[in-house]
C-alpha cells in the first residue's frame, strides 16, 4: 500500500492540479443537473418509470477523483470501459456533453439515439463503452488492448469497475489473460465501500484488492483517501508501463459513493450515512489548492460558472432534441443492408 498526497511526490504542475479540479467540478455539475432533472417530474410519489429521465439512475458523485486522475493520462485513442455508473468516466474521457445528455434523456440526439440509456453509452470516437452487467467491461478492454497491440500502436485500454466486480469471474479471468499476453490494460477498481447494500467487508475476503494482482503476476496498488493526486500518480505509472509494453496493472482506489446506489435508494442499510457529505472530495481538494495559494475564490467560482454553462447547454440541447420515432423501434438490431 502507498499513499501519495503531496506535490513533492506527485510532481504535478499547477496547471495540472487546476485541471484535475476543473474536471471534477465539471463532472459534479453534470451529475447535479441530472439529479435535478431526474427528480423534477417523478412526483407525486416516486415512480421510477416517469419523467423526462426515466429508469434506473446511478450517479457518480464522490467518485470524481478516479475519473479525473485516471483520464488525465488517457489519449483519445486509448480505450475505456465503464460500468452502470459511467458518467464521470465518460466526461473525463472527453465525451461530448450534448451527446451524453441526449442519451440520458432518451433522445435521437443521444449517442445511441435513445436505444441504450445511461448504462449503455458507446462512443467509438473516444473508444468509450460501458455495460450494465457487473464486471463485464473487463473482457472488452482486453480485446481493445489486443487490437492496439496487434496494430502496433502504443494505445492502452483502461477497465474500471466497482469493488463488487472484483468478486466476479470475469475480473479474475481477465487479469490472468492480460498478464499472460502482456496486454496494455489498466484495471481500476473503484472501492466505494458498498455493492448496493452489501458492505465491502461482507463481500470481499481481503482488505485490499490490490493484493490480488500478485496472484496474476502484475503490479497492484491501493490508493487511500479518495485523493485525486494519488490516483493521478498511480495511474500515470500504470499507463506508462502499459504503453511501454510492460503489460497490465491493477489499481484500487478507495473512493466514495456520495449518493445512493441509484436515485430513490433510501440507504437505510448505511450506518455511516450522516457523515458521508463531510467526505466529499471536491471541497477538500479545492481547499487544498486554495491553501497552497494556487486558487482564489474567484478562480473557483469561474470554474463552476464555466461548468454550469457547458452542462446547462447540454441539458437544454437534450430537452430540445426530438424523441425517437416509435416506427423506428426495430432499427439498429443489425447493420443496415447486411
Amino acid at each position: 500500500m502507498r499513499m501519495e498526497t503531496t506535490e513533492a511526490v506527485t510532481g504535478l504542475r499547477t496547471e495540472q492540479r487546476l485541471g484535475l479540479l476543473r474536471q471534477m467540478i465539471l463532472i459534479r455539475t453534470f451529475e447535479e443537473a441530472i439529479l435535478r432533472e431526474y427528480h423534477a417530474d417523478k412526483s407525486p410519489g416516486f415512480d421510477i418509470g416517469k419523467g423526462l429521465v426515466p429508469g434506473e439512475m446511478h450517479l457518480s458523485a464522490g467518485q470524481e477523483p478516479v475519473a479525473a486522475g485516471l483520464c488525465a493520462h488517457l489519449e483519445t485513442g486509448d480505450a475505456l470501459t465503464a460500468t452502470h455508473r459511467p458518467h464521470h468516466l465518460a466526461i473525463a474521457k472527453g465525451m461530448d456533453l450534448r451527446s451524453l445528455a441526449g442519451e440520458i434523456f432518451g433522445r435521437e440526439s443521444g449517442l445511441g439515439h435513445g436505444r441504450g440509456g445511461h448504462m449503455h453509452l458507446f462512443d467509438p470516437s473516444i473508444h468509450f463503452s460501458c455495460s450494465g452487467i457487473v464486471a463485464e467491461g473487463f473482457p472488452a478492454a482486453l480485446g481493445q488492448a489486443f487490437a492496439f497491440q496487434r496494430a502496433g500502436t502504443n494505445s492502452v485500454a483502461a477497465a474500471v469497475a466497482g469493488e463488487g466486480a472484483a468478486n466476479a469471474g470475469p475480473f479474475h479471468e481477465s487479469l490472468n489473460l492480460a498478464a499472460l499476453w502482456k496486454l496494455p490494460v489498466i484495471f481500476v477498481i473503484e472501492d466505494n465501500d458498498w455493492g448496493i447494500s452489501v458492505a465491502r467487508d461482507a463481500s470481499t475476503a481481503v482488505p485490499s484488492n490490490a493484493v490480488r494482482a500478485a496472484g496474476y503476476g502484475m503490479p497492484g496498488i491501493r490508493v487511500e483517501g479518495n485523493d485525486v493526486e494519488a490516483v493521478h500518480a498511480a495511474a500515470g505509472e500504470a499507463v506508462a508501463r502499459a504503453r511501454a509494453g510492460g503489460g497490465p496493472s491493477l489499481i484500487e482506489v478507495h473512493t466514495l459513493r456520495l449518493w445512493g446506489h441509484f436515485e430513490g435508494d433510501a440507504q437505510g442499510y448505511r450506518p455511516e450515512l450522516a457523515g458521508v457529505p463531510d467526505k466529499d472530495p471536491i471541497p477538500a481538494y479545492r481547499q487544498q489548492l486554495g491553501d497552497a495559494g494556487l486558487l482564489s475564490d474567484a478562480d473557483a467560482a469561474a470554474m463552476e460558472g464555466e461548468a454550469r454553462t457547458r452542462v446547462e447547454d447540454a441539458v437544454e440541447h437534450a430537452k430540445a432534441s426530438p424523441t425517437p420515432n416509435p416506427a423506428e423501434a426495430l432499427k439498429y438490431v443489425f447493420v443496415e443492408g447486411e
Binding site: G49, P54, G55, E103, G106, R107, G112, G114, R115, G116, G117, H118, H120, T323, P324, N325, P326, A327, E328, A329, L330, V333
Partner: peptide, 16 residues
C-alpha cells in the same frame, strides 16, 4: 416483443 432488444427511450420501449 418483436425480435429487438428492449429499448431505453419510453417511446421506443412502449412500441415493442
Amino acid at each position: 416483443v418483436p425480435d429487438v432488444p428492449i429499448p431505453y427511450a419510453r417511446e421506443l420501449e412502449y412500441a415493442v
